[in-house]
Design a protein around this nucleic acid. Structure first.
Length: 565
RNA sequence: GGGCCCGUGGCCUAGUCAGGAUAGGGCGGCGGCCUUCUAAGCCGCAGGUCGGGGGUUCGAAUCCCCCCGGGUCCGCCA
């Protein structure tokens, strides 16, 4: 609803500007938003500092300009109640109609509230960790950003297809295959079993020329399609992948397609792309390898032994993704920035649309960065297990009367939710340091806090009978706690919009916490069930709307919203 | 050496893209609130050179330049 309000305010200011004779030509509402210098403000519901902007141009006092605009402004929208000029700002206020519209819309749209009419197909690739060990907490950041974006974009209206790109052709899988022959596979969760082999094989291979040669041989034979090697290597990938999938499922992370890298070699696409590149740009040989010149850097496209490289196969994969979608998104660690910019340059040469690359900084340990190869990492499995355990202790102490099954269920929802929330709440560009103390602290404002607010709202609704919204006098909701809460509830679609523009899902984490905050204040100060009619009924609808917004927000973050906890 | 990112009270963090009205939160600390809808909650107090220095501007956490600290990339690895 807030988007509508923004639009109405924009229109009013634009018209006033036209009256004054200021020339503007802005098409989209986003441009208008920027041009009119609209900002959310604590002094009003929407402020414009346009007069400051124009002051320079018109060589006039901002105050004068503001009053001039204000005098020429006409409000035709029922969503705007009033406006004022203050300190040079144009301050707009939302109307009572607006507040009621918010509540009605939320109930009407219910689980779809947050939809903003986006259209088109999105292919979103995320996680894509090499199947050479278990997912660690750094991979989890990728998964959580990717999966939250999938849910948010989907709510916005996009058709989203998520991909996990399985790197079965890399050197690391050859190393695993080599190690698997030597040590066999332990009877533990597949990804952990493969991880152990990988670490052990790596340390043994290092500096061992004989072993290095054997690994290269495995790689070459796999690419050639040698049946024996292929079946061994594929088996290793499958074992690891089975474990990874189990972990992802527990995290509530969903992938629609798992696509194997080798596919693009087998179907001849890699070869076709090399041919096309030869025709389109400067490709040359050096010591038997095939290279491409990009600006002042050189990119190797094929090894001297004839095998392909990651980037070459990635070109083929991206050609597929970008031609089969309206928007192609990659969620990648910040270390991939260079290679993805090279990839985009090559795609441009091929005349293919380029992907939107969404990067995130690493999660490290207090003492070092993580390394699958060295076996230095904290697995997501371990984090989930300990967080669920912690949550279980918590429910058990708070709800000692509740049945075991209930406590287990809540512990799982809270534990996983807390982990996801902690990974999503921080802006992607910021490096994070993982600490157990921090992870296991459920006292801070995190997922459990928001889930708890949802449970409180649910609890009230369980105890009351709800009248139809049209039969309730919503104008009774006048207390500041109520009004503020309603205003915030009205902003969910706006939040979704912002995330679609920036791919910054942490905005939603902050928003849902703010909703919980205001709801808790409302909850403390104003009785619902014990209020008199018809006020009680009106408040009940506010509780329902809050519940819907909290639930939808949590859903978009992949966090369960328990009815009771 | 070059590129990219980050640097906000003891700790974590929002705000930075699109410069504006007293820099928002949280954790930890201190002090309060359970005979009222779930206290995983609420209220109050203490705590800030927005890494440093220049510059642009009526106005800078936000834009530009330099420097410092941390991360990361610059392979016939992925």
């Amino acid at each position: 609803m807030f988007e509508k309000f923004v639009k109405e305010v924009s229109n009013s200011i634009s018209k006033a500007l036209e009256e004054i004779g200021s020339e503007i030509d802005v098409k989209s509402s986003e441009e208008l938003f920027m041009f009119l210098s609209l900002e959310e403000s604590k002094y009003c519901d929407l402020a414009s500092s346009i007069s400051f902007k124009l002051a320079k141009k018109l060589k006039k006092n901002p105050m004068e300009i503001a009053s001039e605009i204000s005098e020429n402004m006409e409000i035709s929208s029922n969503l705007i109640s009033s406006y004022e000029v203050k300190n040079g700002y144009l301050n707009f206020f939302v109307s009572e109609d607006y507040l009621q519209e918010v509540l009605k819309r939320i109930e009407k749209e219910n689980e779809y509230y947050g939809y903003i009419g986006r259209k088109g197909k999105v292919i979103l690739e995320h996680t894509s960790a090499n199947p050479n060990g278990p997912l660690h907490i750094g991979h989890a950041r990728n998964s959580v950003i990717g999966d939250s974006l999938r849910r948010i974009l989907n709510t916005a209206g996009y058709e989203v297809e998520t991909h996990y790109y399985v790197n079965d052709m890399g050197r690391q899988m050859a190393i695993v295959t080599w190690g698997m022959r030597k040590y066999g596979v332990k009877e533990i969760k597949g990804d952990h079993a493969i991880g152990e082999i990988y670490v052990r094989a790596n340390s043994e291979i290092e500096g061992n020329e004989e072993a290095e040669r054997e690994v290269n041989e495995i790689l070459k034979k796999y690419e050639e399609g040698d049946p024996q090697i292929s079946s061994e290597l594929r088996k290793a990938v499958e074992i690891a992948l089975r474990g990874i999938k189990e972990t992802l499922e527990k995290m509530k992370v969903h992938h629609d397609v798992f696509i194997w890298e080798s596919e693009f070699v087998r179907n001849g696409e890699v070869e076709r792309i090399l041919e096309e590149l030869k025709n389109r740009c400067e490709v040359f040989e050096e010591d038997g390898a095939l290279l491409l010149r990009l600006d002042d850097e050189k990119v190797v496209l094929r090894r001297s032994d004839g095998t392909s490289l990651y980037i070459t196969r990635d070109i083929a994969y991206h050609k597929y993704k970008c031609t089969h979608s309206d928007l192609c998104i990659d969620i990648l660690g910040a270390d991939h920035k260079l290679i993805s910019s090279q990839l985009s340059k090559i795609l441009k040469i091929l005349g293919v649309k380029t992907p939107k690359v969404v990067t995130f900084e690493f999660v490290s340990l207090p003492e070092s960065s993580m390394s699958t190869r060295k076996g230095v990492f904290i697995s997501v499995d371990e984090v989930m297990e300990r967080m669920i355990e912690r949550a279980y202790e918590e429910v058990s102490s708070r709800r000692s009367d509740a049945p075991e099954e209930f406590r287990r269920d809540v512990a799982k929802k809270v534990g996983i939710g807390a982990m996801r929330y902690d990974l999503i709440r921080v802006m992607r560009d910021k490096p994070m340091v993982f600490s157990w103390e921090e992870a296991l602290d459920f006292e801070k404002q995190g997922a459990p806090y928001i889930q708890y607010s949802h449970a409180r709202a649910s609890s009230i609704l369980r105890k009351a009978e709800l009248k139809k919204i049209d039969e309730v006098d919503l104008s009774l909701l006048k207390e500041p706690q109520e009004v503020q809460l309603i205003k915030l509830l009205g902003k969910l679609p706006w939040i979704v919009h912002q995330i679609c523009e920036t791919f910054n899902p942490h905005i939603l984490a902050g928003y849902s916490r703010d909703v919980a905050d205001l709801f808790n204040e409302f909850y403390r100060d104003l009785p619902v069930l014990k209020a008199e009619e018809p006020l009680s009924s009106a408040r009940l609808h506010l509780v329902l709307c809050t519940k819907i917004v909290l639930r939808n927000s949590l859903n978009m973050l992949g966090i369960d919203a328990p009815e009771e906890m």
